[in-house]
């Protein structure tokens, strides 16, 4: 399998936030079908991709995401979480995972000394990490 080194955020979206002293990062796969939806939103319906192809690529991207964002995978990509308790929940219907990182914010936004006290940027940090992505996931209908 040939791979290419690209940011995780090439076709993975993420949004992060706080719950008390814990942070969560939700990460999901951009399906090429969403690109169609985006074009629909922009009022350009003419270049819709084939739905069957788009779903197949999205499913393959999701299977890959599950293999990358394991508990150990998260620890490797975000070293500041190395010693913290982490849960990864899969939400296959949404082609998403939710990562809960316990205690990263101490005892909450008012108490923590972290520069980003509500972990608002944590998802974007994760997306910026460069990883080996199978070229087959890049070559499908454009993200």
């Amino acid at each position: 399998m040939t791979t290419v080194r690209l940011p995780l955020g090439t076709f993975i979206g993420a949004r992060s936030g706080d719950k008390g002293g814990d942070a969560n990062v939700g990460a999901w796969v951009v399906a090429p079908v969403e690109s169609a939806a985006v074009r629909l939103s922009h009022g350009r319906n003419s270049d819709l991709v084939s739905t069957a192809d788009a779903v197949a690529v999205a499913d393959a991207r999701y299977a890959w995401l599950l293999s990358v964002l394991t508990v150990d995978g998260v620890r490797a990509l975000l070293p500041e979480t190395r010693d913290l308790r982490i849960e990864v929940h899969a939400l296959p219907n949404l082609r998403a995972v939710n990562i809960v990182i316990h205690g990263i914010l101490g005892r909450g936004v008012a108490e923590t000394t972290r520069v980003d006290p509500q972990a608002k940027g944590l998802g974007e940090h994760l997306r910026a990490r460069i990883v080996d992505i199978p070229t087959s996931l890049i070559d499908g209908p454009a993200a």
């Binding site: 949004r15 999901w28 969403e34 849960e87 949404l94 998403a96």
Partner: peptide, 29 residues
Amino acid sequence: MVTIGTVTAQLLYEIGGPAYANPDVTADF
């Protein structure tokens, strides 16, 4: 815009496991 992506992003915001509790009911995400 409102797309599957923008709605997915918000569904995942500040949640824990798939069971999302509220005093009235728990939703299975």
